[in-house]
Write a protein that binds this DNA or RNA. Structure first.
Length: 909
DNA sequence: GAGTTTGAAACT
DNA sequence: CAGTTTCAAACTC
């Protein structure tokens, strides 16, 4: 294996050059320019979507990415980006780093995988592993933004609880994050949110001094955990995570060591995860952010590319890792210095997710919700993506879960957790938009050791990390699938992780630390191979990497009931290919439908189907529109037509949830958590499924979140009211799909100012809108949407039911039409938006209203529904923040909109 | 943790 | 397209 490093150099060089520019880069400026408020939203948005990546990858199926570049989302990126970049940046960063301020010392260790990286470094051996890394820089950024918003700052308390490792040591290097930032974040977050994140101090290992920085553990269950310090939000979830660090970490490690050392010198350490970033960001805020930027710029992301940056969000792990590392580093630099001491615990703030007008720490959310991992089937990528996009909230949830699990679990588990974490962090970041936080967050991985699997090796190789993992690592099964966060891990032995057997590969992500695969070629180092392989597979089946679960439009009798979310049954989503279960009766995870929390459809060839989410034939009419897919089911002829019309596209219409991003698996804990149990809930999760990255989505993705676009506050502003509707829709979808958080990101993307959550509230409007538009105005809507550049090309065609479900079916136009538009950067979007609005007006009939949306899926949904409504409020709030920018939404308008979306649109525009 | 079962992916 | 093999996850003990 080539160590990633090999590749790195090149990149590094590139990056290095870039880095400097990075600061100068537009992005940088852009970020800096963002209003404080924006940061929050924007960041998330940006990251998620904007960044190239995120969205893209979400949507884009691996393929897409591939095409564009081989990159896989995440991990890949991570490895690559982070890795290579790290390298590059390292050096640069060193320089840069120095520049960076060091915030204080706070370092946050995230348990997430990011941590791992850090950990590894520090400890790789250290028993604990503490570290953490923050996932992606993006997160950080987001965090920062978020943080910035608030930031009081207190201190963070760590949870000692955390498991493990709190101590973590942080490698000093790695982890330091600016506590302050964290704190700030918390405050900010807290203000909004309840949760607190406690950070656990690294105990053990800390070893050191090196660390100086504290690691902050983020407890997923912040709320629960909360007890801790007011100041800090404790995020415990991660405890273990840290140990595990994902490969990323590992990668980081490698570099880190060097890197770290250097950084350490600088004073940072910082492997960050997204989360970390988030956290860090808080404190730093101004400072950090700046630092972050600087650092990040230097180190992170970006330098090279916004992409990376953006990607972060998108990319879960990978990005996170990479970014994280970078970020972390940067953060560290900033932070550390002082920290050395350690403060051990800092509370991090998880990224706050605005929900219902409140900000919730991502963690918190997560914590509350336990999410089983979404199952993943192929969705991973999507999921991941989604998650990222989704927003912190979702992620958080995941994390919590993961963390929990992690702590409990063995290394392998930890791995998972890490991955998850990272993802989470990433997501969170995205949601939050972090600007770059400066602080580095360290995830704890207690187990640092654990993590690494083969993959790690790869990374490790370079780093020399330790891969700890041992043989044990083989572990088998850990759940390969998602760790919870949606991150997947695999245990492939013979497929070299280059076949769809490999969850990671299938998900379009590189294998990471958590993976226990053997002879893995699904690593950044083998990018070419991976891409090639992907292409081959895609040549056979263009949708091979597409989400397996697609939202179907279901006509439910109960549409009206939608509020409950009842409408939304998982049933609304269907597995693309259907299952062929013979013995499991579709009641076990052997069944992909079941695993995805979706009901079986007529397309399934299962025998004795008893799928709790819906048996074959049960649902009435689910129609799925797939783009080219074989199955193109149309809901209504009309609908289809509309789609086609508007879509220009070729095929492409997927009925999927609007939010592509939502897909993230993590989502909802609820979603998946109960498979059988709550089908209703389940569906959300499936969100991941929804999007199909591949085809269209990729395109879509861009739309969704063009960096510049909507997400950014600025963008938001630009967005026409009409767009609001759209946004709402989007938000709606998201929520429905995921939980809050996730949606948030997307939303944010869509509606930056709304603050994501707020959008959700809009859902009702959306429904209305959708209803109205359905038949009549689909095309118009589409146009509208497209114009908006919103992702949604698909207007909510679907009937209320769908909406109600929380899932709104959306037609996605993969094709050029919208996609093209979408692809265009924000600016265009904005421009377009206006147009759309017009169209919308014309087209959209306001008339129909659907019952209130409802849609949300349970847990959240229920709450969410409230939240949604509330959300609106929230939005309003949010809006204010962005006021200038957002043309789109006025609170008033929003209200009005609720009543009539269409109208509003017209009005606004 | 090892072994078995299961069904998707890959192959023919 | 169907049948078979391969593979890895899910599951059981």
């Amino acid at each position: 294996m080539d160590s990633p490093e090999s590749s790195i150099p090149n990149r590094a060089t590139t990056n290095a050059s870039e880095t400097a520019p990075a600061q100068d880069s537009p992005i940088f400026s852009y970020i800096s320019n963002l209003s404080p408020i924006q940061p929050v939203k924007a960041p998330s948005v940006t990251q998620g979507f904007p960044g190239l990546n995120s969205p893209p990858f979400v949507f884009t199926s691996p393929r897409l990415n591939v095409h564009s570049q081989p990159t896989f989302h995440k991990r890949a990126q991570f490895p690559r980006t982070s890795f290579a970049k790290l390298h590059e940046q390292f050096e640069d960063s060193k320089n840069i780093v120095t520049t960076v301020k060091r915030p204080e010392k706070l370092d946050i260790q995230l348990s997430t995988r990011g941590v791992a990286s850090g950990e590894k470094v520090a400890d790789s051996k250290s028993p604990v592993g503490e570290l953490i890394q923050s996932p992606s820089g993006s997160h950080e950024q987001f965090l920062e933004d978020i943080v910035n918003a608030d930031s009081p700052d207190p201190k963070f308390s760590f949870d000692s609880t955390i498991k493990k490792s709190e101590h973590n040591d942080q490698p000093a290097d790695a982890l330091t994050c600016s506590k302050e930032s964290l704190v700030n974040c918390e405050h900010g977050l807290n203000s909004g949110i309840n949760e607190e994140v406690t950070v656990s101090p690294p105990v053990t290992s800390r070893q050191t001094e090196e660390v100086q920085k504290e690691n902050i553990l983020i407890n997923a269950s912040a709320a629960e955990n909360v007890t801790k310090h007011e100041d800090g939000v404790s995020v415990d979830h991660c405890p273990k995570i840290g140990s595990e660090l994902s490969s990323d970490n590992a990668l980081v490690d490698q570099d880190e060591d060097d890197f770290m050392t250097e950084n350490a010198e600088a004073g940072h350490t910082a492997p960050l995860d997204q989360s970390s970033h988030l956290l860090t960001g808080s404190k730093v805020n101004g400072k950090d952010n700046e630092n972050f930027v600087a650092t990040s710029g230097a180190t992170l992301i970006g330098q090279n590319d916004l992409k990376a940056f953006q990607n972060r969000g998108a990319r879960r792990r990978c990005l996170q890792f990479g970014d994280a590392h970078h970020n972390s580093i940067s953060n560290r630099t900033a932070q550390d210095p002082s920290d050395g001491e350690g403060e051990k615990s800092l509370s991090l703030e998880t990224p706050l997710v605005p929900i219902d007008g409140k900000l919730y720490p991502g963690n918190t959310l997560n914590s509350s919700i336990k999410i089983p991992k979404p199952s993943g089937i192929g969705l991973h990528l999507n999921s991941i993506v989604n998650t990222v996009q989704a927003g912190s909230g979702a992620i958080i949830n995941v994390k919590a879960v993961q963390w929990e699990s992690v702590s409990a679990t063995t290394d392998g588990n930890k791995r998972e957790s890490n991955a998850c974490v990272s993802a989470d962090s990433a997501t969170a970041l995205s949601t939050h938009l972090i600007k770059p936080a400066i602080n580095s967050v360290i995830l704890n991985s207690k187990a640092n050791k654990s993590n690494l699997g083969n993959k790690r090796k790869s990374t490790d190789e370079g780093s020399g990390l330790v891969v700890i993992n041992d043989s044990s690592s083989k572990k088998k099964r850990m759940k390969t699938m998602d760790s919870g966060d949606g991150c997947k891990r695999c245990n492939c032995k013979r497929s070299k992780c280059l076949k769809l057997y490999c969850d990671c590969f299938a998900a379009g992500i590189y294998c990471a630390e958590p993976c226990a695969c053997q002879e893995c070629y699904n690593r950044p180092e083998y990018e070419d191979t991976v891409i090639e392989t992907r292409q081959k597979i895609e040549s056979r089946d263009p949708f091979a990497f597409a989400p397996r679960v697609v939202q179907h439009i279901i006509e439910q009798p109960t549409i009206s009931s939608g509020e409950d979310g009842s409408n939304f049954t998982p049933a609304s989503a269907r597995h693309k290919k259907g299952c062929k279960c013979k013995k499991s009766m579709c009641l076990k995870k052997y069944c992909e439908c079941y695993q995805a929390n979706v009901g079986c459809s007529d397309g399934c060839r299962c025998e004795g189907c008893k799928n709790v989410y819906g048996q074959k034939g049960e649902h009435g009419m689910t129609k799925v529109i797939f783009t080219g897919e074989d199955t193109q089911e149309t809901i209504d002829g009309s609908f289809v037509e509309n789609c086609e019309i508007t879509a220009s596209g070729s095929h492409a219409y997927h009925t999927e949830f609007v939010n592509p991003h939502n897909l993230t698996p993590p989502t909802p804990a609820f979603q998946f958590s109960n498979h059988g149990k709550d089908a209703s809930k389940a569906w959300f999760p499936s969100g991941k499924y929804f999007q199909s990255p591949e085809s269209g989505f990729t395109h879509a993705a861009p739309y969704v979140m063009p960096p510049g676009s909507p997400r950014n506050s600025d963008n938001n502003v630009t967005i026409p009211d009409s767009s609001k509707d759209i946004l709402d829709l989007v938000c709606f979808d998201q929520e429905s799909h995921h939980g809050n958080a996730d949606t948030v990101d997307e939303f944010s993307a869509v509606c930056p100012h709304s603050g994501k959550m707020g959008h959700l509230t809009d859902i009702p409007n959306l429904q209305k809108w959708a209803d109205n538009s359905k038949a009549q105005s689909f095309s118009a809507k589409r146009n509208y949407l497209s114009g908006c550049s919103l992702v949604w090309r698909g207007s909510p065609i679907t009937p209320m039911a769908q909406f109600s479900g929380s899932k709104v079916l959306q037609e996605v136009e993969f094709d050029s039409g919208l996609s093209n538009i979408m692809q265009d950067d924000t600016p265009e979007i904005l421009k377009d938006t206006s147009t759309p609005l017009n169209t919308v007006k014309a087209s959209s009939p306001n008339k129909k209203r659907v019952s209130p949306p409802h849609g949300r899926p349970h847990g959240f949904s229920s709450s969410s529904s409230a939240g949604l409504r509330n959300g609106r409020k929230f939005i309003l709030k949010a809006v204010p923040s962005f006021p200038p920018l957002t043309p789109c939404i006025d609170s008033k308008t929003l209200d009005e909109e609720q009543d009539n979306i269409p109208e509003n649109l017209s009005v606004n525009q």
